[in-house]
């Protein structure tokens, strides 16, 4: 099999980053985050293919996916709390960390 998935992984990762840095809506940020996560999972699986240890990497990938699910749950809970508090999903309204 001569396919190299790495460029695709990087493209996906870059897309996620771009999304994270440019979008303002918290939900869109979640999508960017997910893109990053997916790129990472893909990279792990591809590493298993290259290293010929698919069983190990598949289990790791499963673990990553489950952790991601938890992260998404927590993230959404936070976003929901934020929305209830500020009636907004715009990141410009979250500046409480300003020094």
């Amino acid at each position: 099999m001569n396919i190299n998935l790495l460029p695709f992984v990087f493209a996906l990762f870059g897309l996620g980053l771009f999304c994270l840095l440019t979008r303002r809506s918290l939900v869109k940020l979640l999508i960017g985050l997910e893109l990053l996560g997916k790129a990472t999972t893909l990279a792990i699986i591809w590493a298993g293919v290259v290293q010929k240890t698919p069983a190990t990497t598949q289990s790791i990938a499963l673990l990553v996916i489950s952790i991601e699910a938890v992260v998404v749950a927590v993230y959404l809970a936070l976003v929901y709390a934020f929305h209830r508090h500020n009636q907004s999903l715009d990141t410009d309204d979250m500046r409480r960390l300003k020094g």
């Binding site: 980053l17 840095l21 440019t22 410009d92 979250m94 300003k98 020094g99």
Partner: peptide, 18 residues
């Protein structure tokens, strides 16, 4: 000076991470 880095803006923080 270092306080000014602390904009509190999510995007700046993400940029530092990146």
């Amino acid at each position: 000076l270092s306080c000014r880095l602390q904009t509190g803006d999510v995007h700046w923080n993400l940029l530092y991470v990146t």
